[in-house]
Design a protein around this nucleic acid. Structure first.
Lengths: 345, 345
DNA sequence: CGGGGAAATGTAAGCGCTTACATTTTTTTT
DNA sequence: AAAAAAAATGTAAGCGCTTACATTTCCCCG
């Protein structure tokens, strides 16, 4: 059997070509690649040689069409442009890679419609499982996923009462702990800067957490100002300017995340307010920025990488059917740093 | 024709089911979905109704197997855990979405072998085109891509002399401009903190840029210390500590990127050095951190989003064959901020 | 009202792979 | 050494879709 010479540049070898060159059936070639132990070493070597010679690599579409599984997990995050998701998803990717699976990442820009579309796109692409951020979404889309038998794992949230298993932390009680710390310092005029609460259960839970703490402390929380805004440093700054302009201005501003908090700190300083002497500011997430800014941010530390790793494992268990589909709670930690102090007199 | 009732939960409708229910051929259903103008409104409505009723959604693997294209672009970035890539790639995703294409993102953790593997995986998945960061990699992998006829666009770098078209900026001359600015302030004892140069042409180019500037200024650059380290804030800090411990310590430290520079600034301050009075520090990239830190970082601003958008367009042109495959140069800007000053006496 | 051409639809052959089942070869057992 | 069991390989039927080509339907014009 003489070997092929010089492929024309647009000839892409297929399984059948490999079979022909190595003188075996396509089934054997397939087995060489997917279950090498089932084929004689002698045959295998011959086949692998042909694979090498032809520069063959399998066509994934054909593979997953025929095998009805894709070894692919899909994830939809609100945006990559955000350290906390990027870090977590990187961990997911690494963990899945270890299991031999591939991660497909799409981002929804916080738009529910786009998210639905992306979910369908990932399912169409044969995703064996889907990772989503937060519980809140249309029931219809969960129905769709159920009907397609695509397992779903929710992350960045933990709520076992929800229909889908989740791997994450309790946003509400984490923020409650933060608020208690603020109250303990003696603050009573408290305001919040939050991400938009509609379509975002995490933002909602965090606001609720603050309310919980105030209520428990016997403070009327109906009068707390909650300023909702975009997820950027600038927006956080603008929000703070607005809040301090009101009277009486808050002595402490609890922010829904670190990005908003950093914006708030910078804006306060620009307005000539000292942090924390004149105004205390807290964040949530504990991203790098939190430690770099002066004063360093008091915030809630979230174990993003760990969360990613555990979510990946959980989802893979569900996909392979090798384990129960239960929720996993992770714990957050308060990081008390310079931006929180007692209120001015 | 009575309609199906209550699907068993693991029945997944196919094109053929839709065809049967709506009483047309599979070809017509396919056309309804892909070229609606070719089919009579009346028929189309009937088909779409069936699609709705069955909850049909196309199988992507079958689609791309049959059509021999996937409307998918693959991108491999060193890591998601890095604001500059995350931001650029987000822009790529948005732009491709506008064109009706999907982006698949994988990360290589700066490991060439992993990158090769990922490239093959993306090609196997039917990626119509591939976006890569930087030019430096095995010729063999470019061969592979050529043989498969998969267009490649390189970004985060610009070098028309390289085999593949690139959309980016000239790292060398950008850094040279930065170095000239440092020299203009009177600095002569200059050190660098750089990412590892092996397998990273961008890091290499930046170091070269500094050398260029020094040589032009008539300074012997062979004596410049270049400290190579990991891409983290901590590593940047450790590097700075080492550098200032040497004697004579540098009066200015040029960092290969902002993350290293932020680490350096914080470490200098921890050592009791004032920035820039005792030591000047510069960065590269202009990420958010650069403006938040005190003093703000003098750095090179890179238009990441714009780069992502243009790279996406360029690649899509190559994929659809609707335009020439040429390189595009973007321009960087110096951002002179507090971290750079004249040397101490 | 009939013929011709355009528009709409149908037919059926793959796309490259996996896998159940059939067949052949090798090994083990008696 | 023959029969039975096990291992290796082959055969061929799809997986769900697209699309070239064939056929039917529709519309316009003389």
């Amino acid at each position: 059997m003489t070997s092929e010479i010089a492929q024309p540049s647009d000839f892409v070898p297929t399984l059948a070509d490999v079979a022909r060159v190595s003188g075996v059936s396509t089934a054997t070639v397939s087995r060489c690649l997917n279950a090498p132990e089932q084929v004689l070493k002698k045959t295998r070597d011959r086949v692998l040689e042909a694979v090498e010679e032809l520069g063959y690599s399998p066509n994934f579409s054909a593979q997953s069409l025929a095998a009805k599984r894709s070894n692919t997990i899909g994830a939809i995050i609100p945006t990559m442009e955000n350290a906390i998701f990027a870090r977590g998803i990187q961990a997911v990717q690494e963990e899945l890679g270890r299991a031999g699976a591939t991660l497909l990442v799409a981002s929804s820009a916080y738009k529910p419609d786009l998210e639905n579309e992306q979910i369908r796109a990932l399912v169409a692409r044969g995703a064996d499982g889907i990772l989503l951020i937060g519980h809140a979404r249309d029931l219809a889309i969960y129905d769709f996923l159920d009907r397609r038998n695509v397992p779903v794992c929710v992350s960045w949230a933990y709520d076992p009462s929800q229909p889908k298993p989740s791997v994450g932390f309790d946003n509400r009680s984490a923020m409650r702990a933060m608020a208690e710390e603020v109250l303990k310092r003696g603050h009573r005029r408290i305001a919040m800067i939050s991400a938009r609460q509609s379509d975002n259960d995490r933002a909602r839970d965090r606001v609720q957490g603050v309310r919980d703490a105030m209520r428990t402390a016997g403070i009327d929380c109906s009068e707390m100002t909650v300023f909702e805004t975009d997820y950027t440093i600038e927006a956080g700054g603008a929000a703070l300017s607005t809040l301090v302009a009101s009277s009486p201005g808050p002595s402490a501003v609890i922010c829904g995340n670190d990005v908003l908090a950093v914006g708030a700190v910078k804006a306060a300083q620009r307005l000539g307010l000292r942090v924390p002497e004149d105004i205390s500011i807290t964040g949530f997430d504990d991203i790098e920025l939190a430690e770099v800014i002066v004063p360093a941010l008091t915030t809630v530390h979230v174990p993003h990488r760990e969360m990613g790793v555990l979510a990946a494992r959980q989802l893979w268990k569900m996909v392979t059917g090798s384990g129960p589909a239960d929720s996993l709670e992770l714990h957050t930690k308060l990081r008390l740093r310079g931006s929180l102090g007692p209120p001015a007199l």
